[in-house]
Computed example of a mutant assay.
Amino acid sequence: MDRRLFLRSAFVGVGVATLSGVVLEAASAVPAQPGASPYGSLLAADANGVALPTGFTSRIVARSGQTVPGTSYVWHAAPDGGACYPNGSGWMYVSNSEVSGSGGASVLRFDSAGTVTSAQRLLSGTSSNCAGGATPWGSWLSCEETSTGRVWETYPATGAAAVARPAMGRFTHEAAACDPVRQVIYLTEDRTDGCFYRFRPTTWGNLATGTLEVLCASASATSGTATWQTVPDPDGSPTSTRTQVSAAKHFNGGEGVYYANDTVWWTTKGDNRVWKLNCATNAFELAYDDSLVSGTAPLTGVDNITGSSYGDLYVAEDGGNLEICVITPAAVVAPILRLTGHNSSEITGPAFSPDGSRLYFSSQRGTTGSSSGGITFEVRGPFRT
């Protein structure tokens, strides 16, 4: 079978379990290096302030503090991590709100033509909901980025009441990614001395109980074989989860995390790295490190990460020059879009529609530099699928 046909059939077969696609290979053993984008050079910014390659277009689907067109719902401030889900003949895009003391999450629902049909609040009364992750059973895990932060399970399709999942640990949560093969959920921690965790539910699909584990390896190693040890007290009080296991490996500012096909990738913003773990063997290595590139690093301020069914990774910048960069299976890194006029913002929540033709993301503070100025975009074009 042709490689692309195989990837496409695999993507259709797993459905919501992967959401953004099935990555069968990406970021080879040598950390990615700058090169030509598979989509060509960026053109001048369009009317929405988005610089894109030929054949791509952008539109704004929501603005913080304003009613979402076609609905009566006012979009939340400081949009952050996000994910897409199938929804009948259409799809949904979920987005967190990274506001201290009053964060939460919301959902946009689209019909088959891409028209917004409804929008709804999924979670309220939480704090600094930064990123999170989608589950194979269709819920969204919204993560609080506070020292005692929790993971909240929300339900985009129905809008049912969100449920806190304290067994997943109380720490400075950033993002989550589900591994249905090993039936675990990987978790990042946004601290300069943060850890990389996995949660093993007692019953897959039920996050009420389970075991929290932390990745252990040599402190300075950038490759090797990791082990996992149980975190004795996931509540993190009085001793933080990251300091309970002496062998735990610490990472400088854990951000996005993405899983596909026995591999999990996660980013660390403090050192501009993308890490890669073979989940079957526990071998880890660097997929990208801006200090190891030849010439000027195209990707800095690494943050949220997602992937496509083709095998490409897409990494958003918090800083740098406000780009989303692609890391190809051939380990080439290059920008695929850039925001102009958003100098005090960051790009958040990249996620592909189920068919891979639309990329959603937000500028958390827009052109105003304020959390009330967030803008959520959709980009359409010939993405590799």
Rank of each mutant, 00 (worst) to 15 (best):
V12Q: 14
G13Y: 12
T18R: 04
T18C: 08
V22F: 01
Q33C: 07
G35R: 06
G35M: 10
L52S: 04
P53C: 06
T54V: 13
V61I: 15
A62W: 13
R63S: 15
R63G: 08
G65S: 11
T71A: 13
T71L: 10
Y73N: 05
A78V: 10
W91H: 14
N96M: 07
A105V: 03
V107N: 04
V116E: 00
S118E: 15
G132M: 05
P136K: 06
S139P: 00
C143H: 13
R165H: 05
A167E: 13
G169Y: 02
G169R: 02
R170Q: 15
T172G: 00
H173P: 02
P180N: 01
P180V: 04
C195L: 06
T203C: 03
N206I: 08
A208H: 04
T227H: 09
V231C: 08
P234Q: 07
G236Q: 01
V245I: 15
F251T: 03
F251V: 12
N252M: 12
Y259T: 02
T268N: 14
T268W: 05
A280P: 02
L292A: 15
V293S: 11
G295A: 12
G307C: 02
S308T: 08
L313N: 00
L322P: 00
H342G: 01
A351H: 00
S357L: 08
F361Q: 07
R365Q: 14
T368Q: 10
F383A: 03
